[in-house]
Design a protein around this nucleic acid. Structure first.
Ligand SMILES: [Mg+2]
Ligand SMILES: [Mg+2]
Length: 359
DNA sequence: GATACGAGACATATAGTA
DNA sequence: CTAATACTATATGTCTCG
């Protein structure tokens, strides 16, 4: 069964008429942070992620590394084959979070209507800035310049009548790009794009589109809704068709609270020993609890995740009457979940602990 | 007594970000 | 054929309860 998430209907022609939404995305974020802080890395391929010989993937590749075909989520072994002379670095998440806060603070100086979408991405409702800053292009340049002044990093910016078009705009020209999509240009911009550009069109959905012979957004628009519904289900099908017409939410929601905290680790070699696994759970539980306490969150739901040799993955969760942020409780509950006799008794590749359902 | 149905819990699938 | 992260979010199928 194919499951995809779809944005809720929020047509530009109805509730949110004539808005301007900006999407901001830092270029090769982790790799750019490292090149900024070490001049010796500038102009060289930089790959942030696992180190060659380890288990893991590329988190971020500099544009010099991308020239070798290296990209995010590529197994590190393949990256090492394609680009043996790159500089390989482990991620420094504390650094990236700090830079991220500087970026978001800079954006706040332009408008309070900033929605943080990831560590290096944000949506801004810039509808009201016309009088202050001028046309969308001037607003986009302003966004890029405050980020550059605050962090010495480049960003790509898309501005359009809703979130979808803003996001596709920021993807369109990068690095250091700026793309404005006016409402009357939207359909012409969308039509030649591959359906893989749409939100919710991941590997599984793309395979279905391929089977249906639908390659471009134009072809999707011309497709019989019945046929699409059969393939994707009603909700996903209508969602794709809406996007194909350029319809999407134009809402920007500042300060969205997080819904879960989790920590997981993949072992360099699979672990069979149950005591060793419980020791890992203790460390992961401590990490989750630390984040929970820092953010003053206590959760009712504990989730255990286990991935076995061969990549088979299982989760187990339990709801606690009393919400917790205590690593001892987390570790104990996770260990009890791991003891579920219905779980495979096989070498474990990955184990993780999560906390959600805030008090 | 059997059945329908909504709510909630749980397990899994899929996606998107670096 | 081998390799395949960490983290977060959402959709949906299945089960149980009342
Ligand atoms: Mg980015
Ligand atoms: Mg991004």
């Amino acid at each position: 069964m194919l499951v995809t998430s779809q944005p809720q209907p929020q047509t530009m022609s109805t509730a949110n008429s004539s808005r301007w939404i900006a999407h901001v995305d830092l270029d090769a974020f982790f790799a750019s942070c490292e090149q900024r802080d070490d001049p010796a890395l500038r102009g060289r391929p930089v790959i942030v992620g696992a180190l060659p010989g380890q288990r893991g993937v590329v988190a971020a590749a500099s544009y010099e590394a991308r020239a070798f075909g290296v990209h995010s989520a590529m197994p590190i072994g393949e990256a090492a084959r394609r680009c043996p002379d790159a500089v390989y670095l482990r991620p420094d998440m504390d650094k990236y979070r700090q830079v991220s806060r500087q970026v978001m603070a800079a954006l706040q100086s332009i408008t309070p209507l900033v929605e943080v979408a990831s560590v290096d991405e944000a949506y801004l409702d810039v509808s009201g800035l016309k009088r202050l800053l001028g046309p969308p292009a001037a607003i986009g340049e302003r966004i890029k310049s405050v980020i550059r002044e605050a962090t010495a990093l480049t960003a790509s910016v898309g501005i359009g009548p809703n979130r979808l078009l803003a996001k596709l705009g920021s993807e369109h020209r990068k690095p250091d790009g700026l793309t404005i999509i006016r409402p009357d240009e939207a359909q012409g911009f969308l039509d030649p794009l591959p359906v893989s550009a749409l939100r919710g069109a991941g590997p599984r959905a793309q395979a279905v589109f391929r089977r249906l012979g639908i390659g471009t957004i134009r072809a999707l628009r011309d497709c019989d809704p019945e046929r699409l519904t059969t393939a994707f289900g009603r909700r996903a099908a209508l969602g794709f068709l809406r996007q194909a017409r350029g319809e999407a939410s134009a809402e920007v929601l500042p300060g969205r609270p997080r819904k879960s905290i989790s920590k997981e680790t993949t072992f360099q070699q699979d672990i069979e020993d149950q005591a060793a696994l419980r020791a890992q759970l203790v460390a992961l539980a401590a990490g989750v609890a630390r984040t929970a306490r820092r953010e003053r969150l206590a959760g009712h739901r504990v989730t255990l995740k286990v991935r076995y040799r061969g990549f088979e993955t299982h989760t187990r969760q339990r709801r606690l009457t009393q919400a917790t942020q205590d690593e001892r409780v987390l570790a104990r509950v996770a260990a009890e979940l791991l003891a579920d006799p219905r779980l495979p008794q096989r070498p474990v590749r990955l184990i993780g602990v999560g906390l959600s359902d805030w008090a």
